[in-house]
Design a protein around this nucleic acid. Structure first.
Lengths: 149, 149
DNA sequence: CATTAATATATGTATATACATTAAATACAT
DNA sequence: ATGTATTTAATGTATATACATATATTAATG
């Protein structure tokens, strides 16, 4: 559906402005779809993101700042997300031996289990969320990579 | 820059999953850029969005639910955003005559003035944020419109 | 070695999102 | 016309973002 119709705005200043609005709106569409999947597991999209980063390093630990670097949103607060996940026993936190400023975070068996349950669901959902064929998805990835300069 | 390098993730499950992550990451990139522009005017991106919607109807008023419909993020809370803008005298709020459940919101001269100041800055910024030529922007808009099904 | 600078994490505050609930007004059905 | 359902806006709560600041630790410098 055309973005003009979705947000009931007749015209845009120019196609660049339209593209920005289109990207913001599409993001909202995706986040809404994803949140529905995470909801039953008591996870937010960003908490899921942290778990995936930790699984990527497992069984090695990951520091808070390294999680921050890999997060989709650079400005979000990894420290507090880790705290939430710890309260749910999905991660464990240990002072780093080599540098006592740092904190080593590891995903727990509980966390791995939850991710495993989610894997198939996410994969199917991702395909369904994007109403594009393979060529179009590749094109989209290329455009987004170029867009950020 | 390739999304793989930006978030230091070597591979994705498939190109669909990669596209989702790419869209979320790009959104964060845009919001960060835009926030910097709005900051000196003491506006958040969503507050700016509400003001633009109101200007689109000016001098006619717009109800809270109509603002909500037109917002990029359907789930955000128009009522509280309007309240913030009212505190800054950028909008005024009046009970609707025909339906006393509704509230008519109108942008004030102050609000229009701020938007006018921002117009050129936003236009230039939008072009600079997107490192794409005109053809690519059109392609991107088409893909995003199709993507949402 | 002492002092200063830099780094890692945590925390405080304001704003926004997501969702549920409430309260008032209106529409609708019998 | 009365009772029920729906709609509109506001509000409460939990979470997340954005940014500033604090605290502890390590690195760097004189």
């Amino acid at each position: 559906m055309r973005i003009e119709d979705e947000i009931k705005q007749k015209t845009f200043k120019d196609i660049y402005n339209k593209a920005i609005v289109n990207l913001l709106y599409t993001n909202s569409y995706i986040v809404t779809c994803q949140s529905k999947i995470f909801k039953p597991y008591d996870l937010s999209p960003e908490q899921y993101n942290v778990l995936r980063i930790l699984r990527g390093q497992h069984p090695d630990p990951t520091t808070v700042s390294s999680i921050q670097d890999r997060m989709l949103n650079k400005m979000s607060n990894a420290s507090r997300l880790v705290e939430k996940l710890k309260q749910k026993d999905m991660v464990c936190r240990k002072e780093c031996i080599h540098d006592r400023r740092q904190v080593d975070i590891t995903i727990t068996q509980d966390g791995l289990q939850i991710l495993k349950q989610l894997d198939e669901e996410i994969k199917t959902s991702n395909r369904n969320i994007l109403n594009l064929d393979e060529n179009e998805v590749i094109q989209l990835n290329d455009l987004l990579d170029k867009l950020r300069g």
